[in-house]
């Protein structure tokens, strides 16, 4: 970065900022810098909030809360991790706190990785298994994700959509790695079932 003491120094314009420059400007309280960071990260934060809650009103509030918490704490960011990682973890924690306050059940501590009979592939006597190959379209998948039970949806979003590892999820969800894997497997099985249903069936459950 240019030497701020030099008489020839001209602060870069916002449109030319690197993320590090925007963060430094935000740490000094600059409105433009806050907005720069917001515009850069808004979709991913909002997407996380919406997909974990399945509710746009809640997602609006939680995304707002995540950014407010981020900007209040931005002076403490020292760059030990990537800014996006820091922001993302903060957003996940905001959503998880919200889900806990709503009284939604945590991942069961009694779950194991052993598949139970009810989790096994459906064995329709005399009928062929339906396969989805080639028929998973994005609209139907979004709809199906929204219909997952909250615990399944959370783990599916965190692992398969947001890329968290099971050890990270286990820490966030206060469960074991085995439970996290088991819940993800069940989430995928449930999605498969939902996607196999004819489109006219099964109105979305609240």
């Amino acid at each position: 970065m240019a030497d701020p003491i030099s008489p020839f120094h001209r602060a870069p314009k916002a449109e030319d900022w690197t993320e590090a420059e925007a963060i430094a400007a935000a740490q000094r309280g600059g409105a433009e810098a806050f907005e720069w960071l917001y515009q850069r990260h808004k979709r991913r934060v909002y997407s996380l909030c919406l997909r974990m809650t399945g509710n746009t009103a809640e997602a609006d509030d939680l995304a707002q809360e995540a950014f407010l918490q981020l900007f209040r704490k931005i002076a403490t960011f020292r760059g030990e991790s990537a800014f996006s990682t820091w922001l993302h973890r903060l957003a996940v924690n905001v959503v998880l706190m919200h889900l806990r306050r709503k009284g939604l059940p945590e991942v069961s501590l009694e779950e194991t990785t052993e598949p139970t009979q009810e989790d096994g592939p459906k064995r329709d006597v005399g009928g062929p298994d339906m396969a989805l190959i080639g028929s998973v379209d994005r609209v139907n998948l979004e709809r199906a994700i929204g219909r997952l039970p909250p615990g399944y949806r959370t783990i599916f979003v965190l692992h398969d959509m947001e890329g968290y590892e099971h050890n990270e999820i286990a820490q966030m969800m206060n469960c074991s790695i085995g439970n996290s894997k088991s819940q993800l497997h069940k989430a995928r099985m449930r999605l498969r079932d939902l996607l196999q249903q004819p489109q006219s069936q099964g109105a979305a459950r609240p």
Binding site: R43, S47, V136, E142, R192, L195
Partner: peptide
């Protein structure tokens, strides 16, 4: 194959715009 299709599509879902 179904799991691969589901996970593959999930990774490609577009992030929605906030209001």
């Amino acid at each position: 194959a179904d799991f691969q299709a589901i996970v593959g599509q999930a990774r490609g879902l577009l992030a929605p715009e906030p209001p």
